[in-house]
């Protein structure tokens, strides 16, 4: 009985491995195919596969995600799978790695970069976990001649090492936030700024944008600046405290993302103070639904799906030898009740 169990166990493990490697069985076949094709190509035209940097005759794309868990990156990853599978199907690229999970950990992203090199990737899309910490991942890829496309946020070596960056200007997002408040509270007053995780480039740059606008509007007074760590429930606590502290003097709560602004809005609405303007950046599902239901005035949408589409566009251009833009700015959009239907899809 025990022995049986043991054999079963070993069997399961081996089977598991086989099953895991099953999709790979195509690859040797692919290899053989493309191998012969390439030889044919070289004999006929002596030209190589466009964009192939490691001379294996194939164009392989790597995709290093920031993570596979949070609400902002879910749709981005889903769109990437869709588009890259499509490119593979129509032969524009030979293969791609699938979603590699960066686990929001720069150490993991560096490991994944190494794996991409081993796998023979020619172009890699990376959504950095950290501006500092993920830089070595970009460096490793670039050192191996791989075309690195950085998406969503920059590492501190993106400008020098990456072939392209597709993202949105966070400073601009900050100005949108502040301008929205200025437009809706003409008389000015006291406002609270709830920040993202301190040190994140998004936090720093969005704050910068807010300041740019607010410095020209002396009628507004920033009474509180605290970190909510991108987190809705922390933002709720801060909003609650501010509400009791400043009472009716409080006119606005500006948040670095809209998970936090929707949390603040919930608190404000529950207190019957819907006159307070809460606003944040991202365009996640819940804040959008609040806007749609008229419970929140507006939110600033960061078009993550647009960013990844533009990033993959660069990869496609490399694979086909076309030219591409080095810095792609995917604009932020202020979403209000007027245009919310365009962006709000879910329930």
């Amino acid at each position: 009985m025990k022995k049986l169990l043991a054999i079963l166990l070993a069997g399961v493990m081996v089977f598991g491995l086989m099953a895991c490697s099953a999709p790979k069985e195509e690859t040797p076949a692919d290899e053989a195919d493309t191998g012969t094709e390439t030889t044919a190509d070289t004999t006929e035209t002596s030209s190589e596969r466009v964009g192939d940097v490691n001379g294996d005759g194939k164009f392989i794309v790597g995709y290093i995600s920031k993570n596979t868990t949070d609400t902002f990156h879910g749709p981005i990853n889903a769109r990437a799978i869709e588009v890259l599978d499509g490119l593979k199907a129509d032969g524009t690229i030979d293969d791609w790695t699938g979603i590699l999970d960066g686990q929001t950990d720069p150490g993991v992203q560096i490991n994944l970069a190494d794996d991409c090199v081993t796998k023979g990737c020619d172009a890699v899309i990376i959504l950095p976990a950290e501006a500092e910490g993920s830089a070595p991942a970009v460096a490793t890829l670039a050192e191996n001649g791989i075309a690195v496309v950085v998406v969503n946020s920059k590492t501190n070596n993106t400008d020098e090492l990456a072939v392209a960056y597709s993202g949105s200007d966070d400073v601009y997002a900050g100005t949108l936030l502040a301008q929205h408040v200025v437009d809706n509270v003409p008389d000015g007053g006291k406002y609270v700024h709830i920040q993202g995780v301190l040190g994140n480039s998004a936090q720093i740059q969005r704050g910068e944008g807010i300041e740019q606008i607010m410095k020209d509007h002396p009628e507004f007074e920033k009474v509180e600046e605290m970190t909510g760590n991108w987190n809705s429930s922390e933002a709720q606590n801060i909003a609650q405290d501010a509400l009791s502290k400043y009472g009716k003097d409080l006119v606005a709560i500006i948040c670095d993302n809209d998970d936090m602004s929707s949390g603040a809005q919930d608190v404000v609405n529950a207190a019957g103070r819907s006159d307070i303007v809460c606003v944040g950046v991202d365009g996640n599902n819940y804040p959008l639904s609040l806007v749609k239901d008229g419970k929140m005035l507006a939110t600033v949408l960061q078009d993550g799906v647009g960013q990844i589409e533009a990033g993959i566009g660069v990869v496609k251009a490399i694979a086909t030898g076309e030219s591409y833009e080095k810095n792609i700015d995917v604009p932020f959009v202020l979403v209000t009740k007027d245009n919310v239907d365009q962006y709000y899809t879910g329930e």
Partner: peptide, 29 residues
């Protein structure tokens, strides 16, 4: 699994299964 191109979700599952399998193996053997 990265090289094979297995979806990262399954990697986590496989790791979990490996741990239980290792403990079971040890127990049974």
């Amino acid at each position: 699994m990265n090289l094979i191109g297995v979806n990262s979700y399954y990697q986590t599952i496989v790791k979990g299964i490996m741990i239980i399998a290792a403990v079971l193996l040890d127990l049974v053997m």
